[in-house]
Amino acid sequence: MLPIFDGGSPARLRILRSMVQFADFDSRGYPMVDVRTGYGQWVESYEQTVEDAMDVDVLARLAVPDWPSVRRAADLGCGTGRTGAWLRRQGVAAVDGVDLTPEMLAVARAKGAHDRLVEADLAASGLPGEAYDLVISSLVDEHLAELGPLYREAFRLARPGALFVLVGLHPYFIMAAGMPTHFTSAAGESIAITTHVHLVSDHLTAGLAAGWQLAEMNESVVDDRWIALKPKWERLRSHPVSAAYAWRKPA
């Protein structure tokens, strides 16, 4: 069953979204840089920093996607190729990747999981329309000021009946932890990358407006595995940390 918005017009939802700003929750105060600058600097330590529990383990728990049946996937915000490599291990036949940061693309290219890599904005990928059985985006949405362009581009790329799978930080986690996406620079300084808070309702509104049908949603919480990885997160135990959405394009 699709969600029903009772009394919330698109204009009203836009007003509510504009009131939720990461700055209202930021407890770190790290210097902040734009996405391309930040990931260009983070690239060397990125794969040693990001935990599988944040994204690919959440993808693995989704029931709707039949990964081995996917002939061709578009990986929007492919980064160093972690998601693309995971998809290939699940039996996905071919994966095209798009990312804004050339340094990240260079690592992905060396990894060899993607058939094609494009340096572009994920909302204007330049990839062919209606050419993909799966469109996927991982750990990207918190960097987008608006979700609509991503959902619309994914819809353009997807074949009728295809899926769009998005996994990212749960908005509640961003607010409760007060922590932006960040990395440690070569000089040992903590640097934040532009972070936005998108409520679950923002995702539902953007997805439905683009024409998608919600097929599945999964929310992951801070559990024993997370506490073992991040002992300081004990205060966040049982709080949502990641969210995954599986959308289907009408046939």
Rank of each mutant, 00 (worst) to 15 (best):
M1R: 10
L2F: 02
P3L: 13
F5V: 07
S9P: 01
R14H: 03
V20T: 09
S27G: 06
M32Y: 00
M32R: 14
V33W: 10
V33M: 06
R36L: 07
V43R: 05
E44C: 01
E44R: 14
E51M: 10
M54Q: 13
V56L: 15
V56Y: 02
D57W: 00
V58Q: 09
A60R: 11
A60C: 07
L62D: 11
P68Y: 07
R71L: 09
L76S: 10
G79Q: 13
G81A: 15
R82Q: 13
R82C: 11
T83R: 11
A85Q: 09
L87F: 06
R89D: 15
Q90A: 05
G91S: 07
A94C: 02
V95K: 04
G97V: 06
G97D: 05
V98W: 05
D99C: 08
L100C: 02
M104H: 04
M104Q: 04
A106W: 00
A108W: 04
A108H: 02
R109P: 06
G112C: 08
A113K: 02
D115C: 05
D121Y: 04
L122H: 08
G126M: 06
Y132A: 01
L134F: 09
I136L: 10
L139T: 05
E146L: 08
Y151D: 04
Y151K: 08
R152I: 06
A162M: 01
L163C: 12
L166Q: 14
V167E: 06
V167S: 00
G168M: 06
P171A: 02
Y172R: 13
M175Y: 00
A176R: 15
G178K: 10
E189M: 07
S190H: 15
H198Y: 02
D202V: 00
L204W: 14
A206E: 02
L208P: 09
A209C: 01
A209N: 01
A210Q: 09
A210W: 08
Q213P: 00
L214E: 01
L229W: 06
K230M: 12
L236R: 14
R237E: 08
R237P: 12
R237N: 05
A246Q: 08
W247G: 07
P250H: 12
